[in-house]
Computed example of a mutant assay.
Amino acid sequence: MKYVLLICDDEASIPSPAEIGADPAHQAYTREVEGRNAGRGGARLRPAAEAKTIRVRDGETLVTDGPFAETKDFIGGIDILECANLDEAIEIASRHPYALHGSIEIRPVWE
């Protein structure tokens, strides 16, 4: 089964891509996912200030700057995993470095 990890953290304290690549915790997480052959993709997202939220109400398209909710935490990236079950997805997500100070939301992919 596939799962999407929504990687959330405080945008004000996000390290640069170079810092993330050099971080031993991120390197260990990447090795864990690769070792399990669980990775199916992922991406780091641009800052929330560059987001647009789209809603259609009564036939009118409404475009709002920014994310859909006012919050300190934002979705900064996603990982897509293929795991035997939810328990394995939780085990992998618990090793993500952002789980230590942000949060990781797990959602099954509807296939």
Rank of each mutant, 00 (worst) to 15 (best):
G77C: 07
D87A: 10
K72I: 09
E50H: 03
E91P: 00
A69P: 00
L81Q: 15
D87G: 15
D65N: 13
G102M: 01
L100C: 03
C83N: 12
A69L: 13
R57Q: 09
D58P: 00
E105Y: 06
D58S: 09
A69N: 03
D65V: 11
T71E: 13
G39W: 11
A84F: 05
E34Q: 14
R36P: 00
I78C: 12
V56I: 15
R36C: 05
G35M: 10
L62W: 04
H101E: 04
N37Q: 15
A51Q: 07
R57W: 02
E60M: 05
I80A: 13
G35A: 11
I78T: 15
E34F: 04
I80R: 12
E88P: 06
A38H: 03
G42I: 01
I54D: 02
A51E: 07
S103K: 06
A93R: 01
L86S: 02
I78Q: 10
L81M: 15
E60A: 10
A93T: 00
P47I: 00
G59L: 10
G35S: 09
Y98N: 09
G59K: 13
Y98C: 04
D73W: 08
I78S: 14
K72H: 06
L100R: 15
A43G: 13
I104P: 02
V56Q: 04
R40W: 07
I90L: 10
G66F: 09
L81S: 11
G102I: 00
H96R: 01
L86F: 14
E50Q: 09
A51F: 04
D58T: 01
D58F: 03
P67I: 05
R95P: 01
A93G: 07
Y98F: 09
A93Q: 04
A84W: 00
G35W: 07
D58Y: 05
I92F: 01
L62I: 15
F74D: 03
S103C: 07
I104Y: 02
A49G: 02
V33A: 12
N37P: 00
G76V: 02
P67R: 06
A84I: 15
H96I: 01
P97S: 05
K52T: 13
F74T: 14
